[in-house]
Design a protein around this nucleic acid. Sequence first.
DNA 1: TCTGGGGTCCTAGGACCC
DNA 2: TCTGGGGTCCTAGGACCC
Length: 412
Amino acid sequence: MDACRTILHVDMNAFFASVEQQANPALLGKPIAVVGSSHRTVITTSSYEARAFGVKTGMTPWEARRCCPELILVIGDNRKYTYTSTRINEIFRDYTPEVEAFSVDESWLDVTHSLSIFGSAETIAYLIKARIRHQFGITCSIGIAPNKLLAKLASDMQKPDGLTVIEPENVARILEPMPIKDLCGIGRKMERHLNMMSIYTCGELGRCDEARLSRKFGIIGKRLKEMGQGIDNAPVVPFGEEDDVKSVGHSSTLERDLDDPVEIRRFLLQLSEMVGSRARRYGVSGKTIHLYVRYADFFSSWGKQTTLRNYINLSDEIYKAALSILNTVELEQPVRLLGVCLSNLKHQAEQLPLFADDRRKLEATRAMDSVNQRFGDRVVTFGSLLPGKEKAGSHVIPPSWRPDGIKNVDVL
DNA sequence: TCTGGGGTCCTAGGACCC
DNA sequence: TCTGGGGTCCTAGGACCC
């Protein structure tokens, strides 16, 4: 096998909430939760003070207030989080160029080749913790281990402000009693399936017959056994070397359920414009359009996709394709959520359209994009969006957000 | 006052071609 | 005309992560 590596996993503690508490010292030491502006929002992150009352991610503000009547709700400010996340990742790169952002608040660092410079992985971890605390006033938990899987497991073992080392010789002892769902990649369903096979701990998973796992889970079987043994050869993939983006999508829950076709179409156009402008910024176009609808009852929903002959990324072309899908369906209930996603992507240099009309359309799109990039999304938009009775509520970025440019979106 | 948003990967089944 | 197999592309849906 390959040479022994040393990997750090850095997990920012209650990231969005901690950033807000630093930005407004009146919130320090108080139970707070970060939410979106829509009345249909959920808790994105809560401070440790709030978690002590049982406040959890995904709760509605109403549920959260029931746990914690003093809870302070803060509407998320994405610019603060993306700015802080980007600066923190710059700190990481002072210690190794091999930094992979897993999400807005988690990164892996391969420090194997930095140990001789800084002495030890623990030293690097302490330096990083001190700098983040000094510069941003927030804490993180760091795991140190021979691979990404174990480093992530380690960073979860002490929160907040923890530092946990899993030495190669201790892997088996630590994994033996560890519940399988603590492994990144084993969720609720997988846990249940494994439990039905009498597998509850990583130790049991690691000893399980590979053929038995493969019969049940297919090609994942081998991987599952390895996970139980703490084996993970996945490399840390640094900035700019990731796989190409595979899809670009936006979905949004409406402020109120809609059944007016005109309003539904207007919202669809708005989503198409968001998808299109991001695809153009990435320099990608795609030929599969996916439309997703969730109905008022929350539980029933459907998704349909269509694949075109041509690659597109202009907003009105995306809209047309999404609308053509919508038109094939008789809506059964008012609509709660709409989503549009562009996939089957091609990274391409832009071609000048053949016809003058199309060239003018492209120029108008570029002008619109450049204004929006300077002044924020949707300052300039299509006329039919302007009546804007149904403005989308502002969303807190999903924690899976990564700084632009982390994904490889270069024009070929 | 019920229940967010952005992704990736995998599987199964069907259409179509050679 | 019937039969089978492999490869590719497509749609639909589910599981997982943050």
